[in-house]
Design a binder for these strands. Structure first.
Lengths: 334, 334
DNA sequence: TGTATAAATGAATACGTATTCATTTTGCAT
DNA sequence: ATGCAAAATGAATACGTATTCATTTATACA
């Protein structure tokens, strides 16, 4: 037995006014006399009336829904991202449709879902967006913002940390600390983050005429970091510092190195990227690069609102800085 | 400039049929000739037609949306919960509206949001549901399922681990291992999980005539575990084992104990609850109680579907077992 | 070939709201 | 009291789909 959902018509009858007037009250329209407004609100309260968001969006063409597609929600960095996005968007009255993309690239099915629901915008984090998918969103007037990623063909705005610059500074720091033999554990090789971080890192080493660099592929998970470190340490026992594509990799690396019986940072220095909460846990005390998460989210939301309200706005790239957080996982070599 | 969204009417005109027939094709109705179906699908493809989910749900009264309200998404246990729920529900064609409740209790505003969107069901994890809120959902014909929680006044179904039994087995295990001086670090004291875990734990100690139990309040976070352990160890240096309300507390406890200079498990045994992934990281190797997460989610979804399709179904309580996962954070005392 | 029956189709309508437009009421200055 | 502008109101309509009902077309069988 489905309970009856009361409609604005029901409220109107109970309050003795027309449906239009009820609608005006709930749409925030000011042109309603105080007397009737009172009556209507009373009637609505009595019936526990709730406006129907779907009917409303059908006519206003505003759904107040934002799609957020993530991969790897188990990565604490993205849990934090999700939480912050939720807080910001909820404060603005937007609702989040959460999509956890299993694949490297956002899938047709997932796009369709978002299109069917007429989300006003889509935030894509840590998942690649093909050109055709992006066009599909564009054609339907849906704003797309890439978070912590960007694509070459700039149809969408993007907000991310300047990974190239960060990696350069990290490399510089490590060299200054006297390290000679380097390793880099990457994320998936076709993501902009990986490419830029590697590029910046390499560039500095090249400048310093350092050629001793091993690159090990990973996929931004603890397990991949763990395995990569095992690989590295068996291949080359002389590595004295490892730059990890992100913090969760770094944690895996540290654990793997300790399992082997080596010490951090005495035997091997480890440096991460993101500054997730765990990085400061005493078991790890990971030196890492902090991404200015709150600012990145704020910028993303701001950009999104701007583009929602002005569909002609040109896509924009926002590159944030971040900074090094020095803890104890990197040690100066004498 | 908003791009035009094509409608079933547009497709109908292009295909030379009526809107009804187009609708039939997309609603999966079988009574359409193969010839026209082809034509319609071609026309739809040409226009990149997407049915409007809101218009559809207005008439079918099925929104295919499920609300999931969580707190503490940064707790890895709940990240995993979210991921698994998403996978299951997406496979069934349901979409998730994600709500991260900041407060101990689900708020009026959040309830309203879910009601306005006519979600078909709400999954509430780790957030308390007041009786009035629950009634509100019920009156609107919205199914509510509590996950990992239950309330006394049983208006809603609930799925959770048998915390009472688990705590009893944990206590038994610790006693058998020769421990004498116990501590329990709880979650918020008004949650069913905390109450049941404490009850079971205490009961076994009582049976064994053990009175040496300290109880320290926490809130299911790393930081609270860290602080609680510091408190405990300064108050009573003789504690030889700590039962933590969940794993993330346990990690904080272990770190705090190590910072003090004590060893785990030689000086203090630590045991957790949940079996999150980090529990098996070598830095912690935490002995803990595994909640059968996948089964719990499956049961929740199953229950939800049943109640969505039969609103008369009586609320049901599903209590799962789980089992002890022995690692190395608990040591036998001689 | 003709008839009974099933399948396919389209016209019309409903879902619950916001909004336009025409009409009525109110407030206010004279 | 009168007239006028402004505010308030209601009737009607649109949003995009699914569905009912009546009608047409195809199918099967004798």
């Amino acid at each position: 037995m489905n309970k009856k959902n009361y409609t604005s018509q029901d409220v109107a009858e109970l309050a003795g006014v027309s449906q239009s007037t009820v609608s005006r009250v709930f749409a925030g329209n000011t042109n309603v006399s105080e007397k009737k407004r009172k009556k209507i609100l009373d009637a609505a309260a009595k019936l526990e009336y709730q406006p129907n968001a779907h009917a409303r969006s059908l006519i206003t063409r505003k759904t107040m829904m934002i799609g957020i597609v993530m991969r790897n929600i188990r990565n604490p960095f993205y849990s934090a991202v999700l939480e912050i996005f939720h807080n910001r968007l909820a404060a603005l009255g937007y609702h989040m449709i959460f999509i956890n993309s299993e694949n490297e690239e956002i899938q047709e099915k997932e796009i369709t879902q978002l299109l069917e629901y007429n989300v006003e915008g889509v935030i894509i984090t840590d998942a690649l967006l093909s050109s055709s998918a992006s066009q599909k969103f564009n054609r339907n007037g849906i704003v797309v913002i890439l978070f912590n990623r960007y694509t070459e063909h700039m149809e969408s705005s993007a907000v991310f940390c300047d990974n190239y610059l960060a990696a350069k500074q990290i490399a510089t720091y490590l060299v200054e600390m006297g390290h000679k033999s380097f390793a880099f554990i990457s994320g998936p090789s076709d993501t902009s983050t990986t490419i830029d971080r590697l590029k910046g890192f390499k560039e500095v080493l090249d400048e310093k005429k350092i050629t001793d660099l091993m690159i090990e592929p990973g996929n931004y998970t603890y397990e991949s970091g763990f395995k990569a470190a095992q690989e590295l340490m068996t291949k080359n026992r002389n590595i004295d510092c490892i730059f990890c594509g992100n913090d969760i990799i770094a944690l895996g690396v540290m654990d793997a190195i300790r399992v082997i019986g080596l010490k951090i940072p005495e035997d091997v220095s480890v440096i991460g990227f993101d500054n997730i909460r765990m990085a400061e846990w005493p078991s790890y005390s990971l030196t890492t690069w902090e991404q200015p998460l709150e600012e990145m989210v704020d910028s993303t939301v701001e950009l999104m609102l701007k583009e929602i309200n002005d569909k002609e706005a040109t896509p924009q790239i926002m590159m944030m800085k971040g900074h090094l957080v020095v803890r104890t996982s990197v040690k100066a070599k004498k």
